[in-house]
Write a protein that binds this DNA or RNA. Sequence first.
DNA 1: ACGTTGCAAAGTGCATACAGATTGATCGAA
DNA 2: TTCGATCAATCTGTATGCACTTTGCAACGT
Lengths: 216, 216
Amino acid sequence: MIRTGTTVEQMVRSIADMIVTGELLPGAKLDEVSLAARFDVSRTPVREALRELGAMGLIAREPNRSAVVTNVTEAYLHSMFEAMAELEAICARLSAERMTVDERRALELEHRGSVRLVHAGAEEEYSAHNTEFHTRLYRGAHNDHVFEMVTQTRARLAPFRRAQFRLPGRLAKSYEEHGRIVTAIMRADATAAGQAAYSHVEIVSDASAVFATPGE
Amino acid sequence: MIRTGTTVEQMVRSIADMIVTGELLPGAKLDEVSLAARFDVSRTPVREALRELGAMGLIAREPNRSAVVTNVTEAYLHSMFEAMAELEAICARLSAERMTVDERRALELEHRGSVRLVHAGAEEEYSAHNTEFHTRLYRGAHNDHVFEMVTQTRARLAPFRRAQFRLPGRLAKSYEEHGRIVTAIMRADATAAGQAAYSHVEIVSDASAVFATPGE
DNA sequence: ACGTTGCAAAGTGCATACAGATTGATCGAA
DNA sequence: TTCGATCAATCTGTATGCACTTTGCAACGT
């Protein structure tokens, strides 16, 4: 396979991707031997990859037990959504203050371009647009550490948010909420941008809570 | 050393502690064989510990190079302090709204008890009190994910904040700022608590910026 | 002098081996 | 039948070994 020193990194990305995209569902067991066979490497790099995924919070590890895809309690899921709302609000506020002219224009274009996806009901494509839209918001804050935190939190939430756009009317609502954020940012109204971003995530949270595992 | 946990966990805690306390300064090299000898284990668990510390952001790793204690740029340090201010503000706001009566009382007692350390100029002891004070604030928010983020950010900032209480008059100022936060929380005034916490960190940031490494 | 090349020492990346822990199944006894 | 104990299969935790990479130094040529 890969003979360079990036083997573990690639495995981390690959496994993280499987978790985020739902190929590996919360609760799924990840045993080292199978993974080693699957990636055609020995257990040593597999263990290092699992160590890193554990630190990222994507999997849970206990001594002498197989790693399992993190299956958070309702309470913790709620705390992550609340944190996500706060982080998005921070990004929106900072973006309203700091985005360059080009960044503002690109955000607006990205948003306007998505209206046809809403009308077409293209859930898959809208989901991709949504990711891009929010990533622009995170970058626009011009704060690397906040970017790291919000990106990581987003990754951990991904498995629980997957089906949100399948709920009836969710696409149109999302578009409308994005619009409020964009408007506030174009006006450089940090307070309004923060509030719009906060309530946007709150609504996504409500739409996703149903997928949580009943507390343990 | 702490009894609980596996070998790797203990090493992670131990090394993280050395970094946070300044026993290992930013830029210090951590080679695997030396660490293995020092902890009397083989390189395998050492590598896993380094992998985890890397994921935590405490050390930087590159292929075929020794790990080095993270030596952040001024720009990144600034972004961490700004993020820290936002996180502390969140904790203060949520604490103002959610702390139980017992938690509020304990916070106030902790604060009042520290006045004698200020008068005595006991930097070391005040630093311990400061940690305890802020930890109470983080817990009081009753949000596990925010707690994780703020704790991790705090750990990464620790090496650059160590000497803050040696600056003249810093103890008294810190005490005064804590007082504002406590007052707001006792009044359940979330907005005031958030603002007080934000500016408190801002001041610490200014007091610490001098320790950053000139950008690279 | 100075830059270049080649080599040796040291360190990392990964594979393999072995020891200890866990799990599940089977067999025996109440 | 059911509960419990025992043992084998399986998996994780750690040690060790080998190959490749990096790096510092020294000898060489210009």
